[in-house]
């Protein structure tokens, strides 16, 4: 890379008229909204109401505090479950990536649990931990931890040997090696795994709450479903999607701060 290469954040110049530069994401969202409204009205079935009706329901549920109270409970479950998963992902993943014996000992479990349908553990947690927060946190963990463990282990294994050797030549001990060289070098791949883990954590939160909880978004979506309130189900779904997008955006924000040094990718700006 030459000294003239622009930082990654800046996009390459595009030779297009200004008018055509509408943000593609917004256009896509608007088209989806229109489609929903039209199909919803045409179908006329109770479980797929048009967007306008869903938004009205969402406004009402927000006004009476139903959304906010449950949203806070869910966010608490998500934050706690994700934090535990992230810690496990970093610690176990680093150990597996760095020490052959740890990988040999834990690898089979990690890969088994990575592919196992995480919700099958919900009844176990429910019976052992009861219907409280710890059960939901455990479900979130089962959904999100293993993908972060596996990507962290891969990332650590792929750290260039010459950087490790360089650090050793300056007398780095194992802790300095891991914290000053290996984790920073592995951080781009680790953060890609963290993003996947965050998405899975949101899924785990909602599924766990639907199955176990007495409060939270998952709980009220189950109630709405049982009372055949299609508009409420979709209104809550919108909130869940917002939570998912916001949490992934948070990871991306952190990612950009930590890995701004990664050289330009081959991605086209088309």
């Amino acid at each position: 890379m030459s000294a003239l290469a622009p930082p990654r954040a800046r996009t390459a110049p595009r030779f297009e008229p200004r008018a055509r530069r509408l943000p593609l994401g917004l256009v896509s969202l608007a088209a989806g909204a229109v489609l929903w409204e039209v199909v919803g009205r045409a179908a006329g079935v109770p479980f797929f109401p048009p967007l306008s009706e869903v938004v009205a329901t969402l406004a009402a549920m927000t006004a009476n505090g139903e959304i906010l109270g449950n949203l806070l409970v869910s966010l608490g479950n998500l934050a706690l479950g994700f934090a535990v998963s992230l810690a496990a992902g970093l610690v176990v993943g680093t150990a597996m990536g760095r020490y052959r014996r740890v990988k040999a000992a834990l690898g089979v479990y990690v890969y088994a649990l990575l592919t196992a349908p995480a919700l099958v553990f919900a009844p176990i947690f429910f019976s052992v931990l009861g219907p409280g927060q710890s059960s939901i946190v455990a479900v979130v963990f089962m959904y999100s931890a293993f993908i972060m463990i596996v990507t962290t282990a891969d990332a650590v294994e792929q750290v260039p040997a010459h950087l490790v050797e360089m650090a050793r030549s300056y007398g780095a001990n194992e802790w300095q090696l891991v914290t000053r060289v290996i984790l920073p070098a592995a951080s781009p791949t680790i953060l890609a795994g963290v993003r996947l883990g965050m998405g899975r954590a949101v899924t785990g939160m909602i599924n766990g709450e639907m199955f176990i909880a007495v409060t939270g978004l998952g709980r009220i979506v189950t109630q709405a479903g049982k009372s055949f309130d299609g508009a409420a189900v979709l209104a809550i779904l919108l909130v869940v999607i917002a939570v998912a997008l916001a949490s992934v955006a948070l990871v991306q924000f952190v990612d950009r701060r930590l890995t701004g040094w990664v050289p330009d990718t081959a991605k086209e700006s088309r």
Partner: peptide, 30 residues
């Protein structure tokens, strides 16, 4: 390895995320 010897590598082996200053100070920091 010991502080009486230091090595210069063919492929430079610089830390790509660290500034020139931090790279040069790396051994001192350790």
């Amino acid at each position: 390895p010991g502080p009486d010897r230091s090595m210069v590598f063919q492929n430079f082996a610089l830390l790509p995320w660290a500034t020139v200053l931090d790279n040069v100070a790396f051994g001192l920091r350790l």
